[in-house]
Design a protein around this nucleic acid. Structure first.
Lengths: 109, 109, 109, 109
DNA sequence: GTGGTCTAGACCACT
DNA sequence: GTGGTCTAGACCACA
């Protein structure tokens, strides 16, 4: 949908070798970027507790990445309690009642 | 700034480092030599636009150098627009239509 | 034992279940029909030994059935030696040399 | 080396549907099987504390599986403290001193 | 030349 | 028709 993974090709920069200390900082893995975006939509309320997320295949297509990359992103969201993955059914936004300690893991919440 | 670029690349020299004074001039760095050879094949048409290059590992093996050296060669070809490197997929020869200004960057041609 | 196999496969019937008595006889199950069609193409030579079959998803789409139905059809072809299913790679037509006893298992041919 | 993953093609068995309660039991994922084998060698002393394991690529080749599958196996061994993975260096057997509580995680030890 | 991440797409298992 | 696992092999980043 959004295709916001703009930093994909930026890694090509084999720039000069002085003072890169302030350049490297916002290097983010693709799956982290995607996890952030999905988490943000959950927090924004675009994805509400109990909602079913799009399928992994559709997410992969919309984000322009492969299925395993989506799975890695969903895996972190699952591990931090934002979503619940149910085999054969789908991926659902966790209701707050069942995971009241989200902010212990992620300060953005 | 230029010197620092030079420092970065010095690690390639696992050759003599005595009495460089009169040798250095027309000595070509290994990765430049390799970049030249690949570029030449693109210009010759041995590698055509859209073609997929051999993998970095295979190139490294065939040229008898390490993968990072190959990456440096491919990096310059990428920066000058001859090839397009796509993470997870491969390295592809750029079609001329999409990079009409090749020679603006690379003074050798 | 035979009846139990039959029970397993009944889920395919999302068709009429009234007055089956005189229909059931020459009614072919969907997955058998599909297996027949694929087998026929193997025998005709449209699919040659070593060929890779279309993916389960694509077959499902083309035959207008679900993936599990296709899997059932492929399963019988695999059991009777016509094809070899390799996880993560694909489904391949068996070469006759390696399965010389095909018709011992499948009485239809 | 040993190519002991014998159960690879066994999954093809779409056997009859009666009383599978005692059949399904020893279904094991490929990466778990491999993790078990490596762990066993560590316990046996074939791989000693401080030893460097073969590279992921070599393990993949020797076990006849893909690199990500090996990585999954090594990931569980790393999580349970048997090995330590060092980026750019290799994978090493953990010395007992640094992980004295191995058996809390795995009863086989 | 290692481990790390990603692509693309297959078959498997659950519902 | 979903999520789960796997293949095969690419480029990336560290040492």
């Amino acid at each position: 949908m959004d295709r916001l993974i703009g930093n994909k090709l930026e890694k090509q920069n084999n720039v000069v070798d002085f003072d890169l200390s302030d350049v490297v900082i916002n290097k983010k893995k693709v799956y982290e970027e995607i996890a952030d975006q999905i988490r943000e939509r959950i927090i924004n309320g675009q994805f509400k507790p109990g909602d079913k997320l799009p399928s992994e295949r559709l997410l992969a297509k919309n984000f322009g990445v492969s299925v395993p990359t989506i799975r890695q992103a969903l895996g972190t969201l699952s591990a931090t309690g934002y979503i619940k993955i149910i085999h054969g059914s789908g991926t659902f936004v966790t209701s707050y009642q069942t995971s009241p300690f989200l902010d212990l893991f992620d300060k953005k919440y």
